[in-house]
């Protein structure tokens, strides 16, 4: 997408001049955009390296840098989280912000950079938000109960390859929150659906299946995430290509769990409780 032009850096690489409109917000304030110009951005740089360059320029001017979340810079930790030109993780499908490279932008382009926008993810500073609501959902039931040392021999549990593959497809979710940020309702169904699918289709996940589903959905609702009304934006912006069918399966599992819960609560009391 890089246009023909003759901006070259010392390695003979093409560079871009950019206009950046970046969100600035400190604790207790409502926030606003700040405009900056940045020149000589190599097209091989990643989006975050471009942000580093902007921050270094600000330091030279003695100004505060833009805070943003990032760590691995290789698309796996799920920490980076920028809404670029209105799109969580930017314009390319299937990549995180840290894996987006500047060769996807044009010389002279104006780029808008914002944090995730969602009620359940309040802004901490500038481009960094608080996603601890995701952790709370996992803490409620996103696990299989197995104490250290209590596991049986691994190959005693046979898992057909297609089942293992399907679990792995769902387990690839990096917990970034782009699904929530891209949804008009701020729904977390793609994230929760991915985790529930990962665990609920495995044989090891069966004993806690209903309990897990009910607890995670309840915590999700309590955390202020919105309802799913099938916009499908989450799937379009998910960097790990988690698909909407995890939501369909989550809905089925939830219904199933509710029905079971209903019968166990109207029939004989469950022994042992939990």
């Amino acid at each position: 997408m890089v246009k023909e032009h003759d901006n070259l850096d010392s390695h003979g690489e093409q560079t871009l001049s950019l206009r950046l409109r970046v969100w600035r917000q400190s604790r207790g304030t409502t926030g606003h955009f700040e405009d900056h110009a940045l020149a000589a951005v190599p097209t091989s740089a990643s989006f975050l390296e471009m942000m580093d360059m902007l921050n270094e320029q600000l330091i030279k001017e003695g100004k505060d840098t833009f805070a943003f979340d990032h760590d691995c810079r290789e698309g796996i930790c799920g920490m980076c989280s920028m809404t670029i030109n209105g799109m969580p993780h930017g314009p390319l499908p299937g990549v995180t912000t840290c894996q987006l490279h500047m060769r996807n932008f044009r010389d002279g382009e104006m780029i808008t950079v914002e944090p995730w926008r969602a009620k359940a993810f309040p802004v901490i500073k500038d481009l960094a938000v608080n996603r601890s609501a995701f952790d709370k959902v996992i803490q409620a039931g996103g696990f299989i109960t197995v104490r250290t040392g209590s596991a049986t021999e691994a190959n005693n549990t046979l898992i057909p390859k297609p089942v293992a593959d399907e679990a792995m497809d769902a387990a690839e979710c990096i917990g970034c929150g782009a699904c929530v940020a891209s949804c008009k309702n701020g729904s977390a169904m793609l994230f929760v659906g991915a985790k529930i699918n990962h665990l609920n289709i495995l044989p090891q996940g069966q004993p806690e299946r209903e309990r897990r589903t009910l607890a995670m959905v309840k915590t999700m609702d309590d955390a202020g995430f919105g309802n799913c009304t099938n916009y499908g934006e989450c799937q379009a912006h998910c960097p790990k290509s988690i698909t909407l069918d995890v939501i369909a399966k989550l809905n089925r599992d939830y219904l199933r769990a509710r029905v079971k819960e209903f019968f166990s609560s109207t029939g004989k009391p469950r022994k042992g409780g939990d």
Binding site: I144, A151, T152, A154, L158, H198
Partner: peptide, 22 residues
């Protein structure tokens, strides 16, 4: 060897053969 047992029990989706073994 115990590590693999522990991780499989937790639901870590290791690669499998068609017969279902690791």
């Amino acid at each position: 060897t115990s590590i693999i047992d522990q991780c499989v029990a937790q639901g870590v989706p290791f690669a499998r053969e068609y017969g279902g073994l690791l």
